[in-house]
Design a protein around this nucleic acid. Structure first.
Lengths: 340, 340
DNA sequence: ACCACGCATGTTTGCGTTCACATTTCGCGG
DNA sequence: CCGCGAAATGTGAACGCAAACATGCGTGGT
């Protein structure tokens, strides 16, 4: 077993100095075309790859950006990571993704951040939809730019998120507009900023319409938890309109409703959130609020890049507007036909 | 702006040599407790983090493993990456995930592999459900261990996958057992090995039962493509049993069937694949074949670790057995009640 | 009392690259 | 034909760390 070739091996083979090889590799000027091709040939022949560690050590810069993601099994986070990855590839950056397991978020985030920093990450993207992320963020040395996704404004860091408050309003107003007296809400986990923002939007829309806010139900992000909540809602005759935390929760709710013989949308109208690709094929097709996750990912990387070139952290921000996608789960309430 | 502290800064502050600091950091023996605490204090005070590039350069080893993943938006891949990430964290390895965009798989994979190798990855996991991955794999220098997930045996590399052939049989046999004369199949993309294996399993089960294989329909992995296929199937009165490429495709099929007034399972029985978390909440609840993605991820990392300690590539393999999850989408065919 | 051994610590060297600077080569105008 | 500047190439040092080797000190056995 022979060791990996290094720059001087290439240099020897091409009959030049290692520095010339370096110049070729980095596209520096002042290298004659003939030398360049000779060097290139030697590289190919030896199967030489440059050692990135040595390069980072020598230059003090690296072009890897780290991503700290919360729960990449979920559709939202995974779409964003994917989008960031594609954008990074385009910007000739490489991506190191630290996947935080669900159960011990704080400890895991710490370790991940620690590693990313030690690896010399040039910048970090925190997909930080929960408070636990803030603490890990504090471990990052001041020199390294940060962008959060779904972070909180008070963290005072560049942030990009979907305007979930607006989304909550959108959903609620849409239901109200169809003549429902009020709208029930099955919320997501309360640690998630998104849940809280959607809830706030829901309350705001209700208040503005002069409608009383019914008690709020708490679900996770899963269909199973939505189903549990749905079983409660199904027993409440007054409940004619529901805004669910996300599409999967909505699916669970629909299921519970159906089992109790309550039809969607005839008896109960329902709006989800996210617009996962299969939402249009639920039965009936789900009316929902679309979040452009890929867009969020791209913007996050763009903002990080801005900081990278400017060389310092900033607190710029971007908001992505959600949009209502009207399908088949919203209708007039049956009893109060032409009341409003 | 003062530069990041290095080992000698810590050493100076603690009044020792840099080598002693190194020993403390690496948990070497022969360091007195008092010195150790002094060094630790200095590290904390300075906010020192060791430079991983320098470490890698000096030792020649790195403990980062690379993952090349195809389409992490999908439930399967993302679950596996997540599982690998958790397992890696447990083994004190760090993970660099290269996310291959969908559109130009070959070029993107190349670049990602190139990077991973240059970064000095100790080992690589290819989530390689398509042929394009094989080509990228060839770029990896021989010294670096590889594990593929959903790879092909002829690649001659350590591989772990779900036994999708068995899964296809399972699904088909389950339908046959209920008295269906034959089973239709809506397959996934043909580039994916999983699709092909499931198809083979389907054909085998049919042949074994002496049933004629009806023409096969081709979908993607999405509900939308399943819906398109479903619209065809709905027009075929003979079609009483369908095995769908995955759960989302099954959802699309169900939707199309419902629109044509064909009931599931009374008129058409349906089996999916994957058992995504929301499958139990489809309407009706989907009978499907469960793949233990997390298990696959964990095994992949374990096999990589084995190679890492043994120091050489091997071609061991692991197969994870899928299991049928019986829910509400399979029943006796209506017309041929007590025929078989 | 002396030697030898083991523990705690320091010194030197090299990992593979880039950077700053030194040197050689070449072409061209006077 | 000389000299000068720019282009082409080479040389040495530095990046931050760990490994190998070297040193000094205390302790126990005989």
């Amino acid at each position: 077993m022979t060791r990996r070739p290094v720059m001087s091996d290439v240099a020897a083979k091409a009959g030049v100095s290692h520095q010339t090889v370096s110049r070729v590799l980095n596209g520096h000027p002042h290298v004659s075309p003939t030398t360049r091709t000779r060097v290139l040939a030697a590289i190919a022949e030896l199967g030489y790859r440059r050692n990135l560690s040595a390069r980072v050590l020598a230059t003090g810069r690296s072009n890897v950006v780290g991503v700290v993601a919360q729960n990449t099994t979920l559709y939202g986070p995974s779409s964003m990571v994917q989008a960031i990855g594609e954008a990074a590839l385009g910007a000739d950056l490489s991506l190191t993704v630290g996947h935080v397991a669900g159960y011990d978020a704080t400890a895991a985030s710490r370790r991940i951040v620690e590693r990313l920093v030690q690896q010399g990450a040039a910048g970090l993207v925190f997909i930080a939809p929960v408070d636990a992320a803030a603490e890990a963020m504090r471990l990052v040395p001041p020199g390294i730019p940060i962008v959060t996704v779904d972070g909180l404004p008070e963290w005072n860091v560049t942030n990009v998120s979907v305007d979930q408050y607006a989304g909550g309003r959108l959903a609620t107003e849409h239901l109200l507009k169809h003549g429902h007296r009020t709208v029930w809400h099955v919320a997501g986990p309360e640690q998630w900023h998104g849940s809280r923002a959607r809830e706030a939007g829901w309350r705001a829309a209700l208040a503005e319409a002069g409608a009383q806010a019914p008690p709020m139900l708490r679900a996770g992000w899963t269909a199973a938890s939505g189903y549990q909540c749905g079983r409660m809602l199904a027993r409440i005759p007054d409940c004619t309109a529901v805004f669910a935390a996300n599409d999967h929760v909505a699916l669970g709710v629909m299921r519970a409703l159906a089992e109790h013989g309550r039809r969607v949308p005839e008896d109960v109208s329902l709006v989800g959130f996210d617009d996962v690709p299969e939402a249009a094929y639920f039965h009936p097709a789900l009316t929902t609020v679309r979040q452009e996750f890929a867009d969020v990912g791209r913007q996050a990387l763009r903002l990080l890049l801005d900081q990278l070139v400017s060389g310092s952290r900033s607190a710029a921000s971007a908001l992505v507007e959600p949009a209502l996608v009207d399908r088949d789960t919203v209708a007039q309430p049956a009893t109060t036909g032409s009341r409003a």
